[in-house]
């Protein structure tokens, strides 16, 4: 099946087997290995990417379903080699330990800030409740998102 979609702001056209998952298209076919797989059943959020502005689990979506959509992955949020404020603040607040949850976590935060530039702490927690992190205890991640929201508002 031939599909056409925007991936990290570039339009691509590709032939996909309709029964593979989006995560496999990204990781195996397109070599975008920033998106991680931790559980394959929609529980850990490591595979989170953004499809048409919404955070979704790429392990629970079929690849062809992004036909005509706008997909953003961790590889696509920094511009001209400049880190996105979320990336910058994840670094600064110590939001990263092993880093395996980080791409998914940043994508969930990115989707949150798209929709809600002024999130409360509770709203941030709700947005990342589907992203498990075993290392950080979440605190510094929440801080990073809070600071980024402030910076993005300018």
């Amino acid at each position: 099946m031939k599909i056409k979609f925007y991936l990290n702001k570039k339009e691509i056209e590709i032939e996909v087997d309709p029964t593979i998952r989006l995560i496999d298209l990204l990781r195996e076919k397109l070599n975008l290995t920033g998106t991680k797989e931790g559980c394959s059943i929609g529980e850990c959020g490591a595979c989170t990417v953004i499809v048409d502005g919404k955070a979704i689990n790429s392990c629970l979506m079929l690849a062809y379903q992004v036909d005509g959509c706008n997909v953003i992955t961790i590889e696509g949020i920094s511009e001209d080699g400049k880190l996105h404020p979320l990336q910058e603040n994840f670094l600064k607040t110590g939001a990263i330990q092993c880093g395996f949850c980080t791409p998914g976590m940043i994508m969930s935060a990115y989707a949150l800030l798209l929709e809600n530039p002024n999130p409360t702490e509770e709203e941030i927690k709700d947005a990342i409740a589907g992203n498990l992190c075993r290392c950080t205890g979440y605190k510094q991640i929440i801080d990073a998102i809070e600071v980024s929201a402030k910076e993005l508002k300018g």
Binding site: G42, I56, N57, L60, A127
Partner: peptide, 9 residues
């Protein structure tokens, strides 16, 4: 229900 990612789908 579930996580935001799940509710989005």
């Amino acid at each position: 229900i579930g996580s935001l990612q799940i509710r989005n789908r």
